[in-house]
Amino acid sequence: MNQDIAKILYDDVGFEDITTKALIPPGLEIEAEIICKEDGVIAGVELADTIFKEFSIKTSIKRYDGDLVAAGDVVMELQGDARSIITVERTALNLLMRMSGIASLTSKMLADVKQVNKNIILAGTRKTTPGLQFFEKDAVRAGGGDTHRYRLDDAVLIKDNHIAVVGNVKKAVEKAKDYASFTKKIEIEVENSHDALEAAATGADIVMLDNMSPEEVQNVLEDLENEGLRDKVLIEVSGGINPDNIMEYVKKGVDVISTGYITHSARALDMSLEVL
C-alpha cells in the first residue's frame, strides 16, 4: 500500500476500532456495495480497491476511473470480514468521493470549454492537498483534464518570485535553458505584454499569462501576433479562473487554461457503503 494512504488509514484507526470490535464478532463474513448517490464521473476506484485488498477483502469493480455514473449505480461489490470492511469504510469512501468530485467537476468544465475550442487543454495546478497531490491529479486526468506538473521536477516553471530574485525575464529563461535537460519544457509566468514578448523571443516553450483579465489576454495575443511570435509558444492563462469566468478566456483563443478551482473547490461526489 502507498505509504501516504497507509498513514491516513492508520491515523484514522489508531490502536483499534473500538466500536466495531465491541459490536461485531471476529470472523463474521458479509457482503456490501459502494453505491453512487448522484450523477458524476468516477475516480479513485483502483485506490479504494488497493485499500480493501490490503485487508483481504474481495472486490468486484463495476465502474472504473473516468466512467460516467448515475445515482443508484453500484461502483464496487465487497465480500469479506465484517470488521475489516467497516473499519476501512470511511477512509476508502472519503478518498473515492474526493477524487470523484474532482473528476466530475473537471469533466463538466471541460465539456463547456470544448464547445468553443475543441483543442483547448484544461489543466489542474499544484493547488492540491499535501500528501494527496498524486491522487487529486489522477482525478483530474480521469475527468479528461491535463495534470500539468505533478511535482517540481516535472518541468521548469519560472514564477514571479524567481524573476524577482534573478532580475528579469530574459535572464531567467536563459538560465533555465542552460541548466535544464532538453527533455524539460520551460514555462514562465508573466504579468504584462512586455514580459510575454521577451519570454517568447528568448525561447520559452510556454508563456503563462497570470491573473490577467480577458481583455489583457487579448492584448498580449495581438502583440505576440504582430511580432511574429504567437506560433512559437503555447499560451496558458491562469489565476482566479472558475466556472463563472472561464468561457471569457476560452473565447480569446489561448492554448491552455490552468486552474486550481478543479482541485481546491471541487465538492465530493456523494457515495455510501451499504451492507447487504
Rank of each mutant, 00 (worst) to 15 (best):
D4E: 15
A6F: 15
K7W: 12
D11E: 11
D11I: 04
D12Y: 12
I18H: 13
T20E: 03
K21F: 14
A22C: 11
P25D: 15
G27W: 04
E29Y: 13
E29I: 15
I30V: 13
I30C: 05
E33K: 02
G40K: 05
I42M: 08
F55W: 15
S60C: 10
I61R: 01
Y64M: 04
D65S: 06
L68N: 08
A71Y: 07
D81F: 03
S84W: 04
E89K: 02
L96K: 05
M97S: 10
G101W: 06
I102L: 02
S104Y: 09
S104V: 12
T106I: 08
M109H: 08
N119P: 04
I121Q: 08
R126Q: 09
T128Q: 06
T129H: 07
T129V: 10
P130G: 02
Q133D: 09
Q133T: 08
Q133S: 13
R141W: 09
A142M: 02
D146V: 02
T147Q: 13
T147M: 13
T147L: 14
R149Y: 03
Y150P: 00
D153E: 14
D153Y: 15
A155S: 15
A155F: 10
V156E: 06
L157Q: 08
H162P: 12
H162D: 13
I163H: 00
A164G: 15
A164E: 14
K175F: 04
A176Y: 09
D178Y: 09
Y179D: 12
S181K: 03
I186L: 07
I188Q: 06
V190E: 06
V190K: 06
N192R: 09
N192I: 00
H194T: 15
A199E: 11
I206F: 02
M212F: 04
P214I: 10
E216L: 12
E216F: 06
N219W: 01
V220L: 10
V220T: 15
L221H: 10
E225K: 14
G228M: 07
G228I: 14
R230M: 07
S238H: 01
N242V: 07
P243Y: 10
I246E: 12
E248T: 11
V254W: 03
T259C: 08
G260I: 02
G260M: 00
T263G: 03
S265E: 13
D270S: 01
V275P: 03
L276N: 11
